[in-house]
């Protein structure tokens, strides 16, 4: 199983090194090497190398969380592993959603002159952020591990199902009542040459970073789970000793 291989210390270390190198290269190329494209406000084009990769990782992370929730709910593949995976992926996803919002907001400030525009993508992302904060909150509700896992899996599915509904609702809302909205993706047609390579590198290194973070979060969840179990066993052993005495 892929998970087990990634989880070995050595592979994870290699992955982390690659992700770190990729990030350094992306930042170096993005901030200092690539040209300042015409048609953009001063230097803003450089945000293009991190904003789309951040948004991409966000979708991958939520997709992974949803897939794991489904696998957990499916009786044949029900295993605590998928619960930990869903939680780990969603938490990393929330971090990346926050960063997507911040970088998008800065983009908006330099390009449109406002920190926030009621753009469909932006609004959907903001709602997604709140939705998954709620999901993480419900994961923290204490209870029997199996119950918590099942509860979280359903909450994860309910949250994910809302995403397309929200997106279409917000798109109609904007398209029916205002002129064409500013599309964050319009910049893409200007991407070429060294810029295209930098953007590609950005996608790869942010994805590697996501996998590394998620693997570590997953290991933390497994360790915490074991800690809880062993604490329980120690308490039980104590009670037994008392009873026998």
């Amino acid at each position: 199983m892929m998970l087990r291989r990634i989880n070995s210390d050595g592979a994870l270390r290699v992955l982390g090194t690659l992700a770190l190198l990729g990030m350094i290269a992306t930042v170096w190329l993005g901030l200092f090497v690539t040209p300042n494209a015409v048609g953009y406000a001063d230097g803003t084009v450089r945000l293009l190398y991190i904003h789309p990769p951040l948004a991409w990782v966000m979708f991958v992370a939520y997709g992974m969380a949803t897939l794991s929730s489904l696998l957990y709910l499916w009786p044949r593949t029900r295993h605590p592993r998928f619960d930990h995976l869903a939680g780990a992926s969603a938490e990393v996803g929330v971090v990346f959603t926050g960063l997507t919002l911040v970088s998008g907001s800065i983009w908006g400030r330099t390009t449109w002159g406002v920190w926030w525009a009621w753009d469909p993508l932006l609004t959907t992302t903001a709602l997604l952020f709140v939705l998954y904060l709620g999901y993480l909150a419900i994961r923290n509700v204490p209870g029997d591990p199996e119950t918590v896992a099942r509860r979280s899996a359903v909450a994860g599915l309910v949250a994910f199902l809302d995403v397309p509904v929200v997106f279409f609702a917000v798109s109609w809302w904007r398209s029916l009542h205002q002129g064409p909205t500013v599309n964050l993706a319009t910049g893409k047609s200007y991407v070429h040459g060294s810029m295209a390579w930098t953007l590609m590198l950005g996608f790869v290194s942010f994805t590697l970073t996501y996998i590394w973070l998620m693997a570590h979060r997953y290991r933390l969840a497994v360790l915490r789970d074991r800690e809880g179990d062993e604490g329980l066993e120690a308490a039980l052993a104590e009670r037994w000793a008392e009873a026998v005495r």
Binding site: V27, G30, L31, A41, D42, G43, T44, R46, L47, I50, V102, S103, I106, W107, R109, T110
Partner: peptide, 8 residues
């Protein structure tokens, strides 16, 4: 502008 660097 400084905004981009702040974003990074």
């Amino acid at each position: 502008s400084g905004y981009t660097e702040a974003g990074y």
